[in-house]
């Protein structure tokens, strides 16, 4: 596609801090290149704001190559913007036309409180991982990779689940603010592998208990999370979590 420049109207959520009442503010950016990423367009806007002596817009970003899960904008009603299986940093301005008005909001969920502007606190995800999203091992000598046979299909499915970057788009997209796609992916990728097998029961129980404690909702299988996920995590991972939970709760002898 040929390069073009555009002028845009931005309607951006501004909120001084978690306790403050936020609101939308209108901005205009001009001469934006279609080859810029969405975050670069925000960099341009922030430079404008700094030059004008205003407070720049706070937003999360890190790797800017779609693998860290830091960026988190809700753009025109969809987490990470209009493109499919895409992060905000990989969203390019060619997705928009000259004169467009773009509405940018933070992730909305009580479990993800706004820190400032478009930045939300996603440490709830860290605490869910701490509750069981790992394999306990006594590190001895490195074992030969081929010593533990793993069926190819399991390895592929485990890898597909492990693609989750923990960005929180699933929570942002879900009408219930449920974190089940995230937890489902983390439970699945370990449950599918022999290394994760010994702790599979306690893992799913503890991670789910933490998810509930953090204030995320329950899953109603609408599929909005899957549609918004930048890493195409399958909804089947949630069903696998349910199966793991059912098995753990019936087998557990406490």
């Amino acid at each position: 596609m040929e390069h073009y420049s555009m002028n845009l109207n931005l309607k951006v959520w501004r909120q001084q801090n978690a306790a403050a009442k936020g609101g939308f503010k209108l901005y205009r950016v001009e001469n934006i290149s279609s080859e810029m990423s969405f975050l670069e367009m925000f960099d341009v806007l922030n430079e404008q704001l700094v030059h004008a002596g205003e407070d720049p817009i706070t937003f999360d970003h890190d790797c800017r190559e779609g693998i860290c899960g830091a960026c988190s904008m809700h753009i025109n009603g969809k987490p990470h913007g209009p493109w499919y299986a895409n992060t905000t940093c990989q969203l390019h301005m060619r997705a928009f036309k000259d004169g467009d008005t773009i509405v940018v909001e933070p992730w909305r969920a009580n479990a993800f409180p706004v820190i400032k502007d478009l930045m939300v606190d996603r440490s709830a995800f860290d605490r869910i991982i701490q509750a069981g999203g790992y394999v306990s091992v006594n590190t001895g000598n490195a074992v030969d990779g081929n010593a533990i046979p793993i069926p190819k299909n399991n390895a592929d499915e485990a890898f597909a689940a492990a693609m989750c970057i923990g960005c929180g788009a699933c929570v942002a997209a879900c009408k219930n603010s449920s974190a089940m796609l995230f937890v489902g992916a983390k439970v699945s990728h370990l449950a599918l592998l022999p290394q994760g097998d010994p702790e599979r029961g306690s893992r799913v129980v503890n991670m789910l208990a933490q998810m509930d404690k953090e204030g995320f909702g329950a899953c109603t299988n609408t599929g909005a999370c899957e549609a918004a996920c930048p890493k195409e995590i399958s909804l089947s991972n949630i069903a696998r979590l349910n199966k793991e939970y059912l098995a753990a709760s019936f087998v557990d002898n406490k």
């Binding site: 899953c219 299988n221 909804l235 089947s236 991972n237 949630i238 069903a239 696998r240 349910n242 199966k243 793991e244 939970y245 059912l246 098995a247």
Partner: peptide, 8 residues
């Protein structure tokens, strides 16, 4: 799905 059928 809720009762755990995850096989595609």
């Amino acid at each position: 799905r809720t009762i755990g059928v995850h096989n595609k």
